[in-house]
Design a protein around this nucleic acid. Structure first.
Length: 263
DNA sequence: ATGACTACTCCCAGTAGA
């Protein structure tokens, strides 16, 4: 089965691209971020018409996440635990049942954290700690678990074209990378890194200054797998071509193929 | 280069993204 993640940068602005991509690549489960609309404004009918169940956790103007699944969702739970005061729509978890057992998918939009001298950076670090708490608890179940989304973390120097220019940025500063490594240290596998050691495997190119044309990208969209999911990993990739479409999102989809019995 | 784009919003100049 194929599971994918994509920060669409407005689902309504990107609906044509989303439908084209769903038809071309046919993911069984897709995680979307930055949908940027309330739940009742989400274009669910057009997506349901392609055979998907749709659950959303939206917000006006900013953030917003959604899960699309060809299989019924046994559970669909919005919000990351650990802070009842946090009202930003950045997380939704879904569970599907297959012949081989359950698969749990967490769709997340981790805070950007810039500028780092404002409250935004500590909020990002706290959010990462909450995500680690979530992962630690879920890993105890020893089930296939996938954390998929826009992590707003550049894991290593090979994941950015000019690392020196990013060292003080919230996406790449040492504290951010260390927190991401602690997440991996819980026993999660970075799917793209499990299939390739190559540098330049980018998932985001800024709209400005010809970043796409110059290939000045960064790798910040990730799929992290529990051991039970990693054992079934047969492929992973980045749908880079989507960035060359007309009026694209600044992010492109990332996907994995898992060898799981579905029927 | 206090830039550059894109999308959003009590509709249009300010905010946010990364």
């Amino acid at each position: 089965m194929r599971i994918a993640t994509w920060n669409v940068n407005s689902v309504r602005q990107r609906l044509d691209h989303l439908l084209t991509w769903l038809k071309e690549t046919a993911p069984d489960i897709a995680c979307l971020q930055e949908t940027k609309c309330m739940d009742d404004a989400f274009p669910r009918e057009a997506i349901e018409a392609l055979g998907y169940n749709v659950v959303t956790h939206g917000q006006k103007t900013f953030n917003g996440v959604a899960l699309l699944s060809k299989y019924p969702l046994d559970e669909a739970t919005p919000r990351l635990g650990g802070d009842d005061e946090d009202i930003q729509s950045r997380f939704i978890e879904g569970v599907v049942s297959l012949k081989s057992g359950v698969v749990r998918v967490a769709c997340l939009y981790l805070p950007n954290g810039n500028p780092v001298d404002t409250e935004k950076y500590p909020y990002k670090l706290r959010w990462m700690d909450r995500l680690a708490d979530y992962a630690r608890n879920r890993l105890k179940t020893e089930e296939p678990l996938i954390l998929a989304g826009d992590f707003n973390v550049i894991p290593a120097a090979r994941d950015v074209h000019n690392p020196a220019a990013w060292v003080n940025d919230a996406l790449f500063r040492p504290q951010t990378r260390e927190s991401f490594q602690r997440l991996l240290g819980l026993g999660l596998t970075d799917a793209v890194r499990a299939v390739s050691d190559a540098g330049g495997e980018y998932t985001f190119w800024d709209y400005q200054a010809g970043a796409w044309q110059k290939n000045h990208g960064i790798r910040i969209d990730h799929m992290l797998l529990s051991p039970q999911a990693a054992d079934r990993l047969v492929g992973a990739g980045i749908d880079k071509q989507v960035r060359s479409w007309e009026k694209p999102s600044d992010h492109v989809p990332v996907w994995i193929d898992l060898d799981l019995e579905t029927a």
